[in-house]
Amino acid sequence: MARITRVLSATAVILGFFGAWELLCRLLHVSDLVLPLPSQILVTLIERFPDLWPHLIQTIASTLAGFTFGVLAGVVIGVMVGSSRLAYDTLYPLLIGFSSVPKVAIIPIFVIWFGAGTIPAILTALSLSIFPVVVNVATGISTSEPELEDVLRALGASRRDILWNVALPRTLPYLFASLKVAITVAFIGSITSETIASNYGIGTVMMVASANFDVALLFAGLALISITGIALYGLFSFAEARFTGWATRKSAVA
């Protein structure tokens, strides 16, 4: 019962936001070229959806490809940084330096190396999603409780046994928390790359719409990006709750 009221009130507030937007634009006679009405955006989104759809798929595919490789690399680097002093002293500074560079500045280099199109989008998504994963996995590994490790060490467990049975499972909540961040920034990364150098993908659509002063389409693109972003985030939140319920003490069996 309480859950239903929660959902209803949340929906009411969100609908109220768009209602207020619509109402203010109509009352103040805001030009379509500055800020289109939510209703207009919705209509454009539905009308142009068949055109937008393949671009969206392209962007999501680049995002997921970059994200997957980014997470794999991030986990490996994170385990190294979290368990080895040497890796912490060498890899970590390098990684922080690399992550401090705005990705917009790196995309042209990717383009020179691999040409415009899908690969720079994937690489941008990859390079953005590595960092949050490394930081979280390294934290999880390095804060592993020695008591838990002693239980296995007393049994004669090898370092590998301890990694697989204590350090990694314990790190899962940290990993999943970082996946939510990583998927979001990977999505931003691939769109950014597409706006700079591609002729396909939702980022490209936005650039073309901007050049044509098609403000309604621009906003429709934004709406689509937001909805997809929410969906991706939701997907990984769900996975997090499913696999690391023990960390939040949910009785749902992991």
Partner: peptide
């Protein structure tokens, strides 16, 4: 050990 040290997962 004194602490039961069960793996919480």
């Amino acid at each position: 050990f004194q602490n039961a040290s069960m793996m919480p997962w």
